[in-house]
Design a protein around this nucleic acid. Sequence first.
RNA 1: GGGCCUGUAGCUCAGUUCGGUCAGAGCGCACGCCUGAUAAGCGUGAGGCCGAUGGUUCAAUUCCAUCCAGGCCCA
Length: 933
Amino acid sequence: MNYKKTLNLPSTKFPMKASLVKREPEQLAHWDSGRLYEKLRENSAGNDKFILHDGPPYANGHIHIGTALNKILKDIIVRSRQMVGFDAVYVPGWDCHGLPIEHNVDKELGAAKAGMSQTDVRKKCRSYAEKFIDIQREEFKRLGVMGEWENPYLTMNYKYEAIIARECGQFALKGDLFRSKKPIYWCCSCKTALAEAEIEYKDESTPSIFVKFPLADDVSDVIPELSDQKVYVVIWTTTPWTIPANLAIALHPQYTYTAVDTKNGEVLILARELAENCLEFFGCKDYTFLGDFDAAGLEHKKCRHPLHDRESLLILGDHVTLEAGTGCVHTAPGHGGEDYEVGLKYGLDVYSPVDDRGCFTDEVDFVAGQFVFKANQVIIDELAERNVLAGSESMTHSYPHCWRCKKPVIFRATPQWFISMEKGGLRKKALQEIDRVEWIPHWGRERIYGMIENRPDWCVSRQRAWGVPIAVFYCAECETIHINPQIIDRLYSLFEKHGADVWFDKDTDELLEDNAVCEKCGSDQFVKETDILDVWFDSGVSHAAVLEQRPYLQWPADLYLEGSDQHRGWFHSALLTAVGLRGQAPYKAVLTHGFVVDEKGMKMSKSVGNVIAPEKVIKQYGAEILRLWVSASDYRDDIRISPNILKQLTDAYKKIRNTCKFLLSNLYDFNPLTDAVAYSQMQDIDQYALIRLNELIAKARAAFESYEFHTVYHGLYNYCTLDLSAFYLDILKDRLYTSPPRSDERRSAQTAIHIILDAVVRLMAPIFVFTAEEIWRYMPDTNAKIKESVHLMPLPSVNPEWQNSKLANKWAQVLEVRAEVTQALEKARAAKLIGHPLDASVTISAPSALYDQLREYADELRSVFIVSEVRLVQEQALEDAFESDEIEGLKIHIQAAPGAKCERCWIYDSSVGADSDHPTICERCTDALAVIE
RNA sequence: GGGCCUGUAGCUCAGUUCGGUCAGAGCGCACGCCUGAUAAGCGUGAGGCCGAUGGUUCAAUUCCAUCCAGGCCCA
């Protein structure tokens, strides 16, 4: 007789091979046509909302691995919150305006741009953004990310643009928006402002001069030797043309300075460390040091400007270095970034007497009208003439050039728009709000706090085409901003209807109300500002443009989640816009993730060749593996990816998949509605399996709650490998296969297996969105509504009925002993005593306490150890026994199992041969056959 | 150069919160078993001076300092 046919061997059509690359798109299409996202909305209508507000990626290029990480994390969060009972809506967005797009459109247009209107260029930019939104949308959807893809928010939507303009207008109305000068890169040839990204650095030969600024104030309180001396502070510069704009000289607060008598009636002040080299360059051979001193004593003292009849203030700044020059830094706030910053601190004017052609204005007498670079020599000559030129040469160094015309650019102060950090108390309030937000990880608070604390006023203007205009008018006479609620409303309506283009298409008269008059000076002439807003303002107000606008969302958001670079970016601009106009942070919590790096922890770069594109991973392994990677990593730190890591993840995926497949394959004849066994009637070990499941559920739910998905992954994976595959399921095989199909013992096991699979699939659903659904479809029939999608189900909950610490302790002990038995078996195997564990008979000698406990469940030990026989003795000497290192006094002796091997269940038993009808099987199997037949 | 952060086995993670039982797991690897989860399953084993150096302490992977390496943001 073929006894194998009498066994209940596992059977399922669920494929072992995942074929993710092929199946995932099919699954996505199925969800799409089944309107899964809409069904989730319907199902959770009325539930508490959980709003993760999407930070908009820039609509340019394909997604990269970092964007994929970000979106997958968001998806896992939204799904897990949805599955614990929230109405978790997800509205994705895109950041559409800005220089990179304008730049690329410029390149495409080439010479054609010259003949185009600003509106035409803007149209090109709009369609460019649209193209990449479509591309990225498909890429995000392919990752399994679920959301309102057909109705995302775009910062270039007319309504969004209208809100950007309105929010900016509110800042103006409040008095926080002001116009002031700031130096920016300027191309004198193109007569245009340039952004950092439009600068190319090339070597350039420039003059290098040392200039003596005569000290005007008495400093004998600092250095007594200097009384009645002609004292000069010596500066160094490579841009002599900025000397006319000099307003100060900066010294470093920590450096030591020295006064040098040059024996020609002059005393020079410069940094001690650089003094000798400088003096040598000046050709000064005979000199004496009069004394060293700290810079602090000179702060607020004054020099005379060497060319003009005004003062130059001595100030302190950390930006001063000893790498070159004299340690005394020529400071022209209108012509340098650091000069500007330090100038603000000392209340210096942002003085820049240069026009948009790069020529000096009439303010500067002897070089008026001259081009700055040409004026260099004139100024050097003048300095020499006045005997304040200490030294001069020419040098070559890296200098910024215009990306378009390739000519050297200058730093030039132009009027810009700012949002004040102080006028309306924005800085103070923002800092207070930071402490009302939950920062995850907690150090995010430190990071953004430091930034807000130290940042200058927010410069929000850009001299660009592709963006939302700073929609304000100012008086042509006195430059006062002309703003009121009616203007804001009026422009809002216009923008909402025609988009921001309307600002450029219509004249000031058409946009402004009739009979407008400057409330300060009474003028009726106004200027329409044509600068556009910093794109950080665009995305910064998304809380207003999205959360406040869509009735199914909420303000503030429950969570913002982006990379840690966004402390400076989006978290920052969102905080300032929200606090500025609403007095409150737009988020309750902010979660940050690290950056994706290679296996060695180095950043990815094309030149190094360690870049991994999400598209490639998807094509090779499937999006599920990418999602698995996200879930397995602790994203709070930087996270690593490499072919090796992906390989490991695919192995882990297979293990989990296979474990689920095995569970399914033993449920082919199980109907949970009719065949399930009540918990109280289940076998001991099945009850224990549910205790372990309870622990997994508790752990995973807590981890989902605190966004620690790697804990979910590791918990799930270890449960599958250790609890299930290596322990419970291995033991269960005998019972599942050999017991009569409908017997209590088999149904008990199936009941446990079904509960376990149901819970495991739901726990993995937020992460393994595809595989969970695939398994779900193969689950034994229940009702159609439940079957529809695992994603419509809740996460499993801890079942209090299964809690049983006595049982848990018992099995903890059995497991300890089991570990010793497997070691003993391995030794016996190595000695060729046995092969399969069922070849063995195990004799265990235990000390009395342990013996008493083991005796209580002696009947179960045989199956738990998966051997043919277990004999339990109390503290007996056993020859050739394995002695446990872990459990004192435990001895285990292995010998070949007596009796014959049952052909059906493979267990050695003395009853084999007893039944003449079935001479090759054991009594247990004979009994089973009787029931089956 | 400054701010914030990270550094535990080849890999992914635990742990050390208030310092004191040999630093744990899985994967991978090696070896073996099984062939009734089979392009599967089971077992055993070898892998870590807890980034480096100093300091505090009776005692540090765990506290402090410095350094090195790496990341983000500034300059």
